[in-house]
Each structure stands twice: as C-alpha cells, then as structure tokens.
Simulated scan of single mutants.
Amino acid sequence: MASAAQEGRNQSRILFVKNLNYSIKGEDLYELFGRYGPIRQIRIGDGPKTKGTAYVAFEEMNDAKQALDRLNGFHLQERYIVVLYHMPQKLTAKAELARREAELEALKQAHNITDDQR
C-alpha cells in the first residue's frame, strides 16, 4: 500500500487518456470528464504517434483523482479508455537518458571506441 506522501507525488491535476476512438471530439471529453469538476484544458492528440490520446487538465487535484478512479476502463465510443496521471518527470527522465546516450555515442566515435569485446 502506498504511503500518503508517495500517493501525493503520484497525483496530478492532469490526466493522460489513451485508447480513445479516433473520432472523439473535445466536446465529448468535456462532457464526460466535466462531471467530476471544472476543467482547465483538454488537448487531443492529432499526430501519428498521439492519435487516440488526450490530456485533461482539471482545476483541482481531487477532481482529477475522482475522474481517474471512475473513468479508467470506462466504455466510450466503442473503446475502453485508459486514464492515468500525467507524469512529466518520467518524460524528463527519458529525455535526459536519451541525451546522455547520444553524448556517450559521440564520445565513442570521437575517440574511436567500439563496443566489441575481444
């Protein structure tokens, strides 16, 4: 069971929603998620890698928690949606790792180092 401090770190006012029907509209999401509290913003993915996803930003963290608790697995427009807390620190960590790996690769090439072990 998560401690209160750990749970607080895992919560956010912003929810990440995936497995959405590609024809979903902002109004559909405002109607569904708005039942749980005032919404600051909804952003629907429209690129090849983001289609079928959205971010829903609530005014209050408790409203986001209620929406996540009640809507994760909800059947919406012939799809079962997945609702998660948005975790920007994970995205930052991935970007940092990719940057460091690229730096390492550049150093290997600059110093003619290969990964071959003989």
Score class of each variant (00 low, 15 high):
residue 2 A to E: 11
residue 2 A to S: 06
residue 3 S to V: 01
residue 3 S to A: 04
residue 4 A to F: 01
residue 5 A to P: 00
residue 6 Q to K: 11
residue 6 Q to G: 01
residue 6 Q to C: 01
residue 8 G to S: 09
residue 8 G to E: 11
residue 9 R to K: 12
residue 10 N to W: 01
residue 14 I to C: 04
residue 14 I to V: 15
residue 15 L to S: 09
residue 15 L to T: 09
residue 16 F to P: 02
residue 16 F to A: 06
residue 17 V to W: 00
residue 17 V to L: 04
residue 18 K to I: 01
residue 18 K to H: 11
residue 18 K to R: 15
residue 19 N to T: 08
residue 22 Y to K: 06
residue 22 Y to C: 03
residue 23 S to D: 14
residue 23 S to L: 02
residue 23 S to I: 01
residue 24 I to F: 08
residue 24 I to T: 15
residue 24 I to W: 03
residue 24 I to G: 05
residue 26 G to I: 00
residue 27 E to Q: 10
residue 29 L to G: 12
residue 29 L to I: 10
residue 29 L to R: 08
residue 30 Y to P: 00
residue 30 Y to E: 12
residue 31 E to Y: 09
residue 31 E to S: 12
residue 31 E to W: 00
residue 32 L to N: 05
residue 32 L to W: 11
residue 34 G to L: 02
residue 35 R to A: 11
residue 35 R to G: 00
residue 36 Y to H: 13
residue 38 P to K: 10
residue 40 R to L: 05
residue 40 R to G: 02
residue 41 Q to L: 05
residue 44 I to M: 05
residue 45 G to W: 03
residue 45 G to L: 02
residue 45 G to K: 01
residue 46 D to G: 15
residue 46 D to R: 13
residue 46 D to H: 03
residue 47 G to R: 10
residue 47 G to D: 14
residue 48 P to V: 06
residue 48 P to E: 15
residue 49 K to Y: 06
residue 50 T to R: 07
residue 51 K to T: 15
residue 53 T to E: 14
residue 54 A to C: 10
residue 54 A to V: 05
residue 55 Y to F: 15
residue 56 V to W: 02
residue 57 A to H: 06
residue 58 F to E: 09
residue 58 F to C: 10
residue 62 N to W: 04
residue 62 N to A: 13
residue 63 D to W: 03
residue 64 A to W: 04
residue 65 K to Y: 09
residue 66 Q to Y: 03
residue 66 Q to C: 08
residue 67 A to M: 02
residue 68 L to H: 13
residue 68 L to Y: 07
residue 70 R to A: 14
residue 72 N to S: 08
residue 73 G to S: 07
residue 75 H to I: 06
residue 76 L to T: 10
residue 76 L to V: 08
residue 77 Q to H: 11
residue 78 E to A: 04
residue 79 R to L: 03
residue 80 Y to C: 09
residue 80 Y to L: 07
residue 81 I to K: 05
residue 81 I to E: 07
residue 81 I to F: 07
residue 82 V to E: 12
residue 82 V to T: 13
residue 88 P to M: 04
residue 89 Q to Y: 11
residue 90 K to M: 07
residue 91 L to E: 15
residue 92 T to L: 13
residue 93 A to N: 14
residue 93 A to K: 12
residue 94 K to M: 12
residue 95 A to W: 02
residue 95 A to H: 05
residue 95 A to E: 15
residue 96 E to I: 03
residue 98 A to T: 13
residue 99 R to N: 12
residue 99 R to T: 15
residue 101 E to L: 08
residue 103 E to Q: 13
residue 103 E to H: 04
residue 104 L to V: 10
residue 104 L to P: 00
residue 107 L to F: 12
residue 107 L to T: 04
residue 107 L to A: 08
residue 108 K to V: 01
residue 108 K to M: 11
residue 108 K to R: 12
residue 111 H to S: 05
residue 111 H to Q: 08
residue 111 H to D: 06
residue 113 I to W: 11
residue 114 T to K: 06
residue 115 D to G: 14
residue 115 D to E: 14
residue 115 D to K: 09
residue 116 D to W: 03
residue 116 D to A: 10
